[in-house]
Amino acid sequence: MTRKKKGKTKVTVYPAWCKGCGICAAFCPAKVLEMGPDGKARAVREEDCVNCGFCELHCPDFAISVEPADPEKNGKSAEDESPAEESALPAREHAGENQPG
């Protein structure tokens, strides 16, 4: 986690995949992430991001992406990148399984 210039990154949280466990917000060294009123994480101080990548590596649900901020591509909103539409597919993996493990 080398010291880098702040605010060079874009932090995106995909709300559809976030389960609100709070790990990202609790351990973010620059307090960029916070838990919102909907119980999901959101980037509130993106400009303070030091690009350590902790949240991206430790989000158990792959719901956070940290990318270099590129003003030309900033037209994209978080919703466009969200794979939320996939959750509309029929549930497949919740088949009854009740063995230990």
């Binding site: 995949w17 389960k19 790990i23 991206e56 590596l57 158990p60 792959f62 719901a63 956070i64 940290v66």
Partner: peptide, 25 residues
């Protein structure tokens, strides 16, 4: 740190239901 999540998304089976079945945390 760029593209960590993108790499993971690439290897996931896109016809599965997301988010993952695991509990929060």
């Amino acid at each position: 740190m760029a593209n960590v999540t993108q790499v993971i998304h690439k290897y996931l089976r896109h016809n599965k239901k997301f988010p993952l079945v695991f509990c929060p945390g």
